[in-house]
Amino acid sequence: MTTRNRDGGGPPPERLVALFALALAVLNFPLLLLWDRPVTVLGLPLLGVALFGVWAALIGLLIWVSERPAAHRRKPRRPLR
């Protein structure tokens, strides 16, 4: 099943699962407490900026994993003779 799953032309499952694990970790206790400080960034509270920043970064990673051209995801191209 997993091998067929790879055949959809999409990103490798391992990468998505790893990204999921990363997201689960950074969006939950206790890593969230990192941002829970009375500090402002450009006049904005750190916690809000950080949460939205992490959120945007995760989407960025998802885009990166999803949209890389298929050729890069496949095995390295054969060198030209």
Binding site: P13, L16, L19, A23, L27, L58, I59
Partner: peptide, 22 residues
Amino acid sequence: IWFLPIYLGPLLAMLLAWLVLR
């Protein structure tokens, strides 16, 4: 910020959408 988890959960689901939803 407690309104946020309702939207962070879907983000988690979207990270696996290609595997599960597909």
